[in-house]
Each structure stands twice: as C-alpha cells, then as structure tokens.
Design a protein around this nucleic acid. Structure first.
Ligand SMILES: [Mn+2]
Ligand SMILES: [Mn+2]
Ligand SMILES: [Zn+2]
Ligand SMILES: [Zn+2]
Lengths: 148, 148
DNA sequence: TATTAAATGGGAATGATTATCAATGTCAAT
DNA sequence: ATTGACATTGATAATCATTCCCATTTAATA
C-alpha cells in the first residue's frame, strides 16, 4: 500500500474523501522535506497535476492541518508554510530559523532529553492551566552559516 | 527616569529618534501584558495619541522588533502580534496557545530546568550547524479551559 | 535661524488568504 | 443504470494585513 493511500481511512472521520487533487498534494508533501508555501506547492504540482486550482491547494492544506497530517508553520514573513508530519516518532524534529534569510533547518539531534523534559512540563502546565496539550513547537532563532 | 525614556540611548545606534509616536507605542506596550496586533495597538492609542497613523504603528513595531525591544509573534491566524520584551531575566516566559480560540497564556513556571537544557542544546546546535543562536521560542498548543 | 535628514500620516498598492458560485464528481439507494 | 443529496473543484472576486509612496512636518545640528 503506497504512501498517501495509507491515510485513506483517516479521511472517513472527517466526512472527507481522498480525491485526486488531495492525493496529489499529499503525495507531493510526503516526499518533500522542505517547508513550502501554498503557492510553491501549487507551482510544484503543475507537472503531476496540471489544472489543479490554488483554492484547492489552500483548502486541502487547511483540511490536512486540521486532521493533523501536516503542520502549518508561520515564521513571520507573509506566508504560511506546510510540512508533512510523520507519525514515526523518530522523525519528530524541531527548527532552527535564520532571521535574516528565512532558512529553516530541521534538527532531531539532542531530542531525547528535550522530549523528556517537554513531557514533564506538559503535564505540569496541563494541570495548572487546565489545558489539553496536543503539540509543541521549539525553535531557535538566529543567523545561519550563509548569512554570517 | 520613566519607562520608555530609559530606552532612549538604545535608539542612537539605529540612527533613530525617540519621537512622540514611538514613545507612545513603547509606553503602551510596556504596560500591556497582552499579545496585540498592530490594529489593536493603533486603536488603543487613539485616547492618548489621536492622529497617530497606522503606518507609523507598523513602522515602529518593525523598528522595535529589529532593536530587540519587542517580540513579534505569529500564531498562524492572519496577523502578527507584538509584546514588550523585558530585559529582566525573571520575566522571560514561554507560551501556551489555544488552537481553537487563539488565546495565549504566558507561563514562566518550570523554566529553570527548561532554560538549562535550552542553553545546552543551543550550544550543540550552534556548533553543529554553524549558526549564531540569538533567541528561542517554546510553545505548547492545545485546547484552553474555555474551549474544552 | 537655516539646513538637512528622519519621520509622519494618509491613501494607494500589494499580496496572501477566503468567500462565492456554477459546474463536476461521488456514493448510496432505488 | 439513474437519481438525488452532497462534497469537491477551479475560476474569480472579495477581504484584509501589511507595505509603498509622497507631500508635509519634525527633530537635530550648525
Ligand atoms: Mn520542519
Ligand atoms: Mn508572551
Ligand atoms: Zn540565513
Ligand atoms: Zn480557547
């Protein structure tokens, strides 16, 4: 069973169908390790799916984000970026972001300690603020190699 | 010497002046503990500074962010939010964000362990990726008390 | 005070995202 | 296979935050 198809059943609970455009977007995102804007995704798709509409790209990204299949991230320049969110724990990662050029580096080293502490903090915060914690973001901001 | 005035000298290095509109914005932000959009700041200022322009608010927020006096944050809804960034280490905080209503909670409990680990991770990442790390963000996403 | 550059406010322009809508596609019951 | 009930799509228009532009005002300095 190939990549995106595995996710078919996850669409059912959302009264949603795994249609051709959605599958194309999912297929594309699941292969990219970048953090791409809607317009970039739209442009990249023109080869494999000419005729797809930009609206559909936005709608699908929103749906996938609500489903927890992709992560939407805002680094503060004008546009949102999206990345496939793997279920494998070993692909969990955090970010290093260059405030000069916008470059985003995924890092997954040093996460063991980090995640242990995160889990503990999560529990404490959940109790204290009566909050259901579903996810976390950790990012380091600074100047990348090229921009130094 | 009152609040924002203490910052006057910091403007010099930026070839910038601490003008009346800038002082009004700074004064306002330094008193608020919220995370406000440009439009909200603009609206709030109409009492103390009628006639200020929205462009000036945007320009000033951008300047203050570049100077490191305010933090710009993007929670993913359409607009950026800003908050005064105190120099006191004891006011450093992280965020708990409700993905349903957008509520942002500052938390500064449990930071000692967190910051220790952050510092260590920072050093490792800086070396490995040849990156100058200047700041970090940690946020937990989930559902707030009201939205449960 | 005269000179000069920085800053301002208002309005127009830009650009990302959403809303609208007529046309299609899907699915299940007939 | 046909139909009816919806879900989805793509094109386009509308929205809305942010940036640009520029004539006018303000601050700094001599
Ligand atoms: Mn990433
Ligand atoms: Mn805060
Ligand atoms: Zn860079
Ligand atoms: Zn909430």
């Amino acid at each position: 069973m190939s990549g995106p198809r595995k996710l078919k059943h996850r669409f059912e609970g959302y009264a949603s169908r795994l249609t051709a455009p959605r599958e194309a977007i999912l297929e594309f995102l699941s292969k990219s390790s970048k953090h791409m804007s809607a317009k970039e995704i739209y442009a990249s798709l023109h080869g494999s799916y000419p005729g797809i509409g930009l609206s559909t790209v936005y709608r699908t990204l929103d749906l996938l984000a609500r489903m927890g299949i992709v992560t939407k991230l805002a680094i503060g320049d004008g546009q949102s970026r999206y990345e496939f969110k793997s279920k494998e724990k070993d692909e969990h990662h955090h970010h290093l972001i260059c405030t000069n050029c916008g470059k985003i580096i995924n890092y997954s080293e040093f996460l063991d300690e980090e995640l242990g502490l995160v889990k503990k903090t999560e529990e404490r915060l959940a109790k204290k603020y009566n909050f259901i914690i579903q996810d976390h973001n950790i990012e380091f901001l600074g100047i990348c190699e090229k921009c130094k």
